[in-house]
């Protein structure tokens, strides 16, 4: 256990989680197949994947950091830069676009006072454009922490943001 604590120096994973990953990596013939699982777990705990997370993943899976980075930087739902506590993925694909997705995106930007790629000063929200979220029947939609919201009217934005703010201060 002492050694396990050492490989996760900044506490990116829960102790049991880390132990489970290490055990699972030992069982698998190709531990590398877990790379997304580990990165997602780190992101879930830490909000995003810092360099230490890439290095920790590499250590758990017995591969090099560049091998993890090659994969981590490919996927748009793995954050290699700090994001707010609530990264808001706003769908900009065709069904949401045809149902007022652009106006919705503008409303989010206006409400939060940030543009895409930015994080609010309080560190709560980051706005990100996203491809189709798979809820085309409920357009326009957004996703926050793998939870989907849609169809959203422009009026819903304030309420959603306020709800998340309350959640954050609770």
């Amino acid at each position: 256990m002492a050694q396990e604590e050492k490989i996760d120096q900044i506490g990116l994973l829960e102790e049991e989680e880390l132990a489970a990953f290490i055990d699972h990596a030992c069982e698998l013939e190709h531990p590398r197949e877990m790379v997304i699982d580990v990165l997602r777990a780190i992101q879930k705990n830490h909000g995003w994947v810092p360099d230490e997370g890439v290095e920790l993943t590499a250590t758990i899976l017995g591969i090099t950091p560049i091998e993890v980075e090659e994969v981590a930087t490919f996927y748009d739902k793995i954050f290699r830069r700090q994001v707010g506590r609530f990264p808001i993925h706003i769908c900009d694909s065709i069904c949401c676009w045809s149902n007022g997705g652009e106006e919705l995106a503008e409303q989010f930007q206006k409400t939060l006072g940030i543009t895409f790629g930015e994080t609010t000063k309080d560190g709560l929200f980051t706005l990100l454009p996203s491809c189709c979220l798979g809820v085309c029947g409920q357009a326009p939609a957004v996703m926050i922490h793998q939870k989907l919201y849609g169809p959203l009217q422009l009026d819903d934005v304030d309420e959603l943001i306020n709800r998340l703010r309350r959640e954050a201060s609770a």
Partner: peptide, 17 residues
Amino acid sequence: SDFGVMGSRNRVFFGRY
């Protein structure tokens, strides 16, 4: 073992971690 390709689409980057 210290060189690879990162990113995707028209932004792929070839270099070190």
